[in-house]
Structure formats: structure tokens, C-alpha cells
């Protein structure tokens, strides 16, 4: 009873800190959206005049259908690539995760550590040889160059394996006694039970692919083959620092699908992040 006022004070202070932080983190995004509605080529508005008196929705038409910098085309490329990569990667990763989590074979630990090791250490070393590989296949500036390197992911294998391990082995054994093959167990028991983990891995893959910058920048060079993220960087450089409203319009276009997928799938996230940490 005695420390009730103290508790209330503590709670209020905590809320003030959390709200302050939320405002600080969200302010740049709010600014981005508001500036995207100012007339093209207008200077950075004063804070007091940030909310435009007449929102310039036409910026979105201009940005999407500018013939020299076709953001609608970039968007389409990103969408094709992201969908192909997510589906392809979920397929390869869930199959591998099934083998690593549900089957016994010699060398399993070695294979698993190869996946994990490549995930932790490969990084920047791969930029030159993967470029050479794609060039030797004659894939430069094509969808294959944007999609094929992404359809395998050690991280997704790791994440799905962690989840598949948590499904009781008795389910597989019972199905096997009934004469089910491993492919049937995989497709009819493990995948349906692993929906949440597939959603998580799929979401992470979507974010990673949609915002991938370095790889797509190296392997494409024509305007028609640019993805949205690369296109956005070109957009910024071609306008220099001068046209903030149109740049922010393009940035909003990039962000919308990310936020939509995030809000739709975020309830799976806490679980997914923890599985990623091996818990």
C-alpha cells in the first residue's frame, strides 16, 4: 500500500520514456510521408508548414510512370523477384530442414555446420565469385540473376530446422507405421504444423529480398531490370539533393509492401526471432 504512489510514478516515467522513443523513431517516417505530398521541387518545408495545405497526390503518378525512371516497372521487377525467391527458398529450405531435423544419417552434423558457417562468415567474400558465376551463365541483367542466388538460404534452413525439431517425433513414427512415406509425412504433417515458422521464414526472406541492394546493383545495369531498392538509389543520385518531395514519394512506394507484410505477419515474429537465436 505504502509504495502505490511510487509505482504510479515509475509507470508514468516508463511510459514517457517509451512514448518519447516511439516519437523519435517514427518522426522520420512521418516526415517522409508528409514531404511526399508537397509540390515537386519545393524546398524542405519548415516544421510548422509540414502538413501540406493541398496534398500533391500527383507526385505518385509522376514517380510511378516517369518514362526515364519507371518506378512502376521497378516495383513489378521487385514483386516478381520477391515472390519467386520466397516460394523457391521456402521449398528448398523446408526440404533440407526436414532432413536435418527429422531424419538420421551420417554426416548430418557436418552438413548442418556448413549451413550455419556459411551464414555467419560468407558475406562480403562472395561478391566477386558470385558475380563471375552469374556472368559465366550469361545471366547478367536478367531475372535469373536476381532470383537464382536467393532461392537457397542457410538462415531459413536453420530457422525451419529449429521449429521442425520441436514437433514430437511420435507423429512421424505413427504415420510411418501406417505406411506413409517421408514425402507424405513432410507435406501432410510437418508443413501444416509448421505454418507459423514458414510464415516467419517467408516474411524474413521477403524483407531481405525486397531491400536487397548490393547484389541486384552488381548484376543488373539496364533501367528495365532494376529492382525497386536499386531504382530508389538511382533516383536519389539522379535528382541530387534537390527534389525531396519526389524522392520521398519513391521511398514511400518502397516502404508500403514492407509495412503491409510486417503488420500482417508480425504476430509470428517474436517466435521467429527467438528460433533464429537457437532457443
Amino acid at each position: 500500500m505504502r509504495d502505490k504512489p511510487l509505482e504510479i510514478l515509475k509507470g508514468t516515467l516508463a511510459h514517457m520514456a517509451l512514448i518519447g522513443l516511439a516519437i523519435a523513431l517514427m518522426a522520420p517516417f512521418v516526415w517522409m510521408v508528409l514531404v511526399s505530398l508537397h509540390p515537386s521541387r519545393s524546398p524542405i518545408p519548415d516544421i510548422g508548414k509540414l502538413v501540406p495545405s493541398q496534398p500533391e497526390w500527383d507526385n505518385y503518378r509522376k514517380v510511378l510512370f516517369n518514362p526515364a525512371m519507371p518506378v512502376a516497372r521497378f516495383f513489378w521487377n521487385s514483386l516478381i523477384v520477391a515472390i519467386a525467391v520466397v516460394l523457391g527458398q521456402l521449398f528448398t529450405a523446408s526440404m533440407a530442414a526436414y532432413a536435418l531435423a527429422r531424419l538420421n544419417f551420417k554426416g548430418r552434423e557436418t552438413v548442418f555446420s556448413l549451413f550455419v558457417g556459411s551464414m555467419m562468415f560468407a558475406g562480403l567474400v562472395l561478391q566477386i565469385p558470385v558475380y563471375l558465376l552469374i556472368r559465366s551463365f550469361g545471366w547478367l541483367d536478367s531475372y535469373a540473376a536476381l532470383i537464382v542466388p536467393g532461392i537457397g538460404s542457410a538462415f531459413s534452413v536453420f530457422l525451419l530446422r529449429q521449429f521442425f525439431l520441436s514437433i514430437p517425433m511420435e507423429l512421424s513414427e505413427a504415420a510411418r507405421l501406417d505406411g506413409a512415406t517421408d514425402f507424405q509425412i513432410y507435406s501432410r504433417i510437418i508443413l501444416p504444423l509448421g505454418k507459423a515458422s514458414l510464415a516467419t521464414a517467408g516474411a524474413f526472406t521477403f524483407f531481405g529480398t525486397w531491400t536487397d541492394f548490393f547484389g541486384p546493383m552488381l548484376v543488373t545495369n539496364s533501367t528495365e531490370m532494376r529492382t525497386l531498392e536499386v531504382g530508389l538509389s538511382v533516383y536519389k543520385n539522379s535528382y541530387g539533393g534537390t527534389n525531396w518531395p519526389l524522392q520521398m514519394t519513391a521511398a514511400v512506394v518502397v516502404m508500403i509492401p514492407l509495412v503491409a507484410v510486417f503488420l500482417a505477419l508480425q504476430r509470428y515474429f517474436v517466435r521467429g526471432v527467438l528460433l533464429g537465436a537457437g532457443k
Partner: peptide
């Protein structure tokens, strides 16, 4: 939210 954002868009803002 910032962690899932586009790196290029984040850099711009």
C-alpha cells in the same frame, strides 16, 4: 519497424 525498412529509404530519410 525501422529494422524491416528499406536500407536505401532509411538512408535517405
Amino acid at each position: 519497424l525501422p529494422s524491416i525498412s528499406s536500407g536505401v529509404a532509411l538512408a535517405m530519410i
